[in-house]
Simulated scan of single mutants.
Amino acid sequence: MTFSICVRETYEGEDGEEHTRYGVAVTTRLAAVGTLCPFANEHGAVATQSLVNVELGEKGVEYLADGLAVEDALSALLNADDGKQSRQLHGVDAEGTFAFSGDECMGWYGHVEREGFTVAGNLLTGESVVEATADAFEDADDDLPLAERLVDALAAGQAEGGDKREDLEVQSAALKVTTTEDREMTPYYNDLRVDASKEPVADLRETYELAGESFDAAVAKYEEEYENDEIDGDE
């Protein structure tokens, strides 16, 4: 299912301590990719695609939480999967990266592993899609929020042609960002989906911007209540 990116990076939190955050973003020419492909928790990020096996993503992040290294966790899952050669699976954990593209994936397909992140795609217009996605993320300003940089990376891949199935007009996109930092509130813009659209990456960017405005407005209006835990921060 098109192309995705999984990321790990360290940063200094508001408490002055070093923390790790993980991100995953994906777009495809089918609806509701956010229900199938991207998985993340405070231990890593995983994307499962091509002939999707959702269990690879679900169990992948569970194994990371259990302490397995990403290469060991995802390799073990693939080795137990009879459909391995039709899968793409990639991800990151606190120390490593892993990427796999089965021989029966549909072209163009492939992946790249770089320092702290992976990109994979199938049914693409060409290799330049994953390379542009990777380059855009690698060259991005680290001071920008990770969610914003993930959207920018998808946009770069889309500009290179993205998914080649132009006869499929309905598309989707999604992103998730997690962190090891203990937060009172998780920003709304760190878990977003555009389930059905003709311009999913542009709509994901707009959704991200609106979610950021919503988060800031809610914090400004209800800051005292949040601090006193008098209202549910998820509402």
Results as ranks from 00 to 15, higher is better:
V119T: 00
V24Y: 01
T97Q: 00
V61P: 02
N41R: 03
V46Y: 00
L56E: 02
V24T: 01
E62V: 07
L36N: 06
N41F: 03
T118G: 04
G83S: 07
A80E: 07
N122V: 07
G121Y: 04
L51P: 10
S101R: 06
H43V: 01
G60P: 15
G96Q: 09
C105V: 14
L51N: 08
N122D: 08
R29T: 08
K59W: 03
L77R: 06
Q88S: 10
E104H: 07
A80D: 02
S50W: 08
T28N: 05
A31I: 03
S75H: 15
S75W: 11
L89Q: 09
H43M: 05
V46K: 02
S75V: 13
G83T: 13
S101I: 07
A32R: 04
F100W: 13
T97D: 02
S86D: 02
A94G: 11
D103L: 15
H90L: 06
G102D: 05
E115Q: 07
A69W: 13
W108G: 13
L56V: 15
E58Q: 13
N53S: 15
C37Q: 14
E42D: 09
H111C: 15
L78C: 12
V70P: 05
G34K: 07
V92I: 09
E95P: 01
L51Q: 08
R29W: 02
A76Y: 03
G57P: 12
D93C: 01
N53M: 14
W108V: 15
Y63G: 14
Q49W: 07
D93S: 00
D82L: 08
G116Y: 01
S50T: 12
A47T: 15
P38H: 03
A80I: 10
V92G: 09
A65S: 10
S101G: 11
F117V: 07
Y63H: 03
A65V: 12
A76H: 12
G102F: 10
L89R: 08
L64Q: 02
E62H: 06
G67H: 05
E58W: 14
G91M: 05
